[in-house]
């Protein structure tokens, strides 16, 4: 029952409903045209909602026809999801650190943490790649492209 398509359909319904809710709350100007700023969003919200329902129904019909256990589809997915979530957390840590430590230090930390997280070992190679990688990126963005990267509290 809880196949990927079914869950995808449920998320679509939820997204469509939320979007539709805000579309109906959309402020309209007295100068607006007949369609107005809420016209297209309302149409899209209803469409999204309908498509979500269709996907759910399709998924139920399919699982009834094939009688295949839906959970097989999800095997190992939880573990994979948590590994991906870990990477997202590291990216968020970078977002926080870059304002405090500045670009050069934060990107070195990011390179080190991500490489370790993805399976690299503590070694001289890791340090070289993290420091060298940060230096290359700093040279490209700051020296070459003249991008004012965050300097953090150090400068």
């Amino acid at each position: 029952m809880l196949s990927k398509d079914f869950v995808g359909g449920l998320i679509t319904i939820l997204l469509g409903s939320l979007y539709l809710f805000f579309a109906f709350k959309q402020r309209v100007s007295a100068l607006a045209d007949t369609v107005g700023p809420a016209g297209m969003p309302k149409f899209l919200g209803i469409l999204m909602l309908s498509l979500g329902v269709i996907l759910c129904v399709q998924s139920v019909v399919h699982s009834l026809k094939t009688n295949a256990p839906a959970l097989v589809e999800w095997q190992g997915e939880g573990k994979r999801f948590f590994r991906a979530f870990g990477l997202l957390c590291l990216a968020i840590v970078y977002l926080v650190l870059v304002s405090i430590l500045g670009y050069v230090l934060a990107i070195t930390v990011l390179l080190t943490l991500v490489a370790l997280y993805l399976g690299a070992q503590f070694s001289g190679q890791l340090a070289t790649i993290a420091i060298g990688g940060a230096a290359i990126l700093w040279a490209i963005f700051v020296l070459l492209l003249d991008v004012p990267m965050p300097s953090g509290i150090l400068l």
Partner: peptide, 24 residues
């Protein structure tokens, strides 16, 4: 090794996207 390559790609993406509008 993949870990180094992917770490560098992530750092490249984060730096590149920031450089568009200098915006976190």
């Amino acid at each position: 090794p993949r870990p180094y390559l992917n770490a560098f790609i992530l750092a490249l993406i984060m730096s590149g996207i920031y450089s568009i509008n200098n915006s976190l």
